[in-house]
Nucleic acid binder design. Structure first.
Lengths: 156, 156
DNA sequence: CACAATAAGTTTCATTATGAAACTTATCTA
DNA sequence: TAGATAAGTTTCATAATGAAACTTATTGTG
């Protein structure tokens, strides 16, 4: 396969995001993490993922700062995998995927899990809006590209 | 590999969504489609994807109703690939990924493309909220699972 | 119209990524 | 302390991917 092309240097934030979490399993692991799972075995049982692949994914997600590995017991070797702040910031991504799935991938009357506010029980939804609060859809939006001349500018 | 496990029967909408568009390349193709691309060659050049893989992905995305293939010229064999309504509904997913990428994958001062409202030039953002309009974060939300007894209930 | 140049795929082949199962330690439990 | 779990790692077979060559269909040019 000649190694999958990396998009980390792409100037499109979506591309970099997909480069970080767009591979098979990663977002499912993150979903389970949002659902409270922390242990290797929990992820493995929930997803039915091969153990070697899960091991590799947990390592990568940790290296990328999306999960952090903390010793399950003081002095012990076993880890618990917890979402970092960076990982928790994927919440809108999860909600967006969920919302699209609900809209388009379930038959009428077919049951699915739902995301609700803990306290009120109200359904959680997601809105795309301008920074002054007006809802907007794809047609109203446009991508402002980085001029060629500025692309190479790197941080510090 | 014994075929990648399918999640289409999972009762979690996020899992089904990832099953549909969570493979390598699919969302990048969708991103380019949002950016106005329609032709095989445009996607190929933009992404640097192998032609056989692009061919397969376009076929799959079309089969799943996310893209539709329309003849480029009347009577011609060449296709244009356009987002369907279902495909355009992935807009919030793209915005969510973009927003996370902007927040966490760019160094300070490093340039990136931005999503703005066409008319006003205002930045587009994304908010997770309850259905009565209050913003909410991951801590305030909880997943309501489908009871075991109801899982099997299928549509029509 | 004839001929070259593109566009859009498809086929073939080499290589990587994944899955399953067996194997290895470390940790927990009775 | 012995057996049972948990958490990985190793090994091996197979699927997915990438690159390049190849095939048609379409477009452009004189």
């Amino acid at each position: 396969m000649v190694k999958r092309r990396s998009l980390v240097s792409d100037y499109c934030p979506s591309a970099r995001a997909l480069d970080a979490i767009g591979d098979w399993w990663s977002l499912l692991i993150v979903r389970d993490a949002f659902d409270g799972m922390t242990r290797f075995g929990e992820f493995q049982k929930s997803l039915g993922i091969a153990r070697n692949i899960l091991s590799e994914r947990l390592r990568t997600l940790t290296a990328r700062g999306i999960l952090e590995a903390v010793p399950a017991a003081a002095g012990g070797a076993r880890q618990e995998y917890r979402l970092t702040a960076k990982g928790r910031d994927l919440f809108p991504v999860m909600v967006a995927l969920r919302q699209w799935g609900e809209q388009h991938l379930f038959g009428p009357g077919e049951r699915h899990s739902s995301l609700i506010e803990r306290d009120s029980g109200r359904k959680v939804t997601l809105t795309v809006q301008t920074d002054d609060g007006r809802p907007i859809d794809a047609d109203g939006a446009v991508i402002l590209k980085v001029p060629e001349s500025e692309k190479q500018r790197s941080p510090s």
